[in-house]
Design a binder for these strands. Structure first.
Lengths: 171, 171
DNA sequence: GGTTCTAGAACC
DNA sequence: GGTTCTAGAACC
């Protein structure tokens, strides 16, 4: 973690990789410095990646790029999208540009967030259902308490009725 | 689309690839025939994949496997998960086994579905909550009917009580 | 239905 | 925060 410039570990490594002259053959800035190129994914993954990361595949590298908001640059040739096979791969981020290190601090890693994407809407639905169930529950409890009151009254009246009945019969 | 055996295009191709003697060096059944192995992802992607699919990368192949319910077999070595670098990659599906072509028809491609992934589990949770709410509702209705019965009895007794009371007073 | 880019989630 | 497997979604 590069604490001095408050830039996260991944970005520091990426920065180094893209600037470094020794890796220029496999990863470097594009012509205009607005994006960077991985010139040979295979070799890059096997030769460079393991020196900087805990793996040697391109997927993990791309996953990290996506986590930091980088996007693959899709090349449009004459109207339709066609990536030539095994050609260079280009990635871009609005705050990752050559000679503009001051922008780097604006790059934020996306939060992993334990909550899935549509949890919110489901959460709302659940809240409503639970709230509704609670109202039913409360109404039931109210009714039950009224029931037990009436039951007691009924028993009292019953006893009194029996008392009157017995008295009547004994007369 | 292999209409004759009702097996989808991808599965037919995969079947061929795994059985084929000529590709045995890069993709073949595992020892016990319960899974299949890609012995060299790099070479497989570049040499075999483009002959069968419209691309030459392993990602597309893996995406299709996942779409059909295949799972990567993760090897556990001495307690912790460790995949050796550039070793064979193993995939498995309960209905994709050597010499058991009759099972193939059970393999279904996952529907793209507008519904997100966890709809099912949420659906289950919702079902339980709704079912629970319904039970509370029914219990409430039962109690309410008992209540109205008791209420009627109570009123009758009350009237009788009043009758006795009045009679007593008038005596 | 197939391919690609990106994201979710589990596990580290 | 990093890595891996799997899925979502757009586009074909």
């Amino acid at each position: 973690l590069d604490v001095s410039s408050n830039v996260l570990a991944f970005l520091s490594k990426l920065q180094t990789l893209v600037e470094e002259a020794s890796t220029k053959e496999l990863i470097t800035w594009s012509q205009n410095g607005q994006s960077f190129l991985v010139l040979d994914e295979q070799r890059f993954a096997k030769e460079i990646v393991p020196k900087y990361f805990k793996h040697n595949n391109i997927e993990g590298f791309v996953r990290q790029l996506n986590m930091y908001g980088f996007h693959k640059v899709v090349h449009v040739d004459s109207g339709n999208v066609k990536q030539e096979r095994d050609g260079p791969v280009e990635f871009q981020h609005p705050y990752f540009k050559q000679h503009q290190d001051d922008l780097l601090e604006n790059i934020k890693r996306k939060v992993s967030s334990s909550k899935p994407k549509e949890t919110k809407s489901h959460q709302e639905v659940l809240s409503k259902i639970i709230s509704s169930a609670q109202k039913v529950q409360i109404k039931r409890e109210t009714v039950e308490s009224r029931l037990s009151t009436l039951k007691r009254e009924n028993e009292s009246l019953g006893k009194w009725q029996n008392y009157r009945q017995n008295k009547q019969n004994s007369n």
